[in-house]
Amino acid sequence: MATCKDCKGFFAREDDQDRGDCVMRVTDPRQAYYKAVPVEADKDASKCSSFRKR
């Protein structure tokens, strides 16, 4: 099963390797930005449309 930590967009926290940020590039009709969502490293990512294998 693919998990968040297997994804290129996952960046583990220095103080807690079991958690981290899912960092994504988003371009909306007005601006471009990087977005971070907190995730568990072992979270199931098999259905994630943004998953990019590390």
Binding site: F11, R13, D21, V23, R25, Y34, A36
Partner: peptide, 13 residues
């Protein structure tokens, strides 16, 4: 959290 994201972007993106 913003500090962490900014560092991640500086280092990896």
């Amino acid at each position: 959290r913003y500090a962490r994201l900014a560092r991640t972007l500086a280092e990896h993106f």
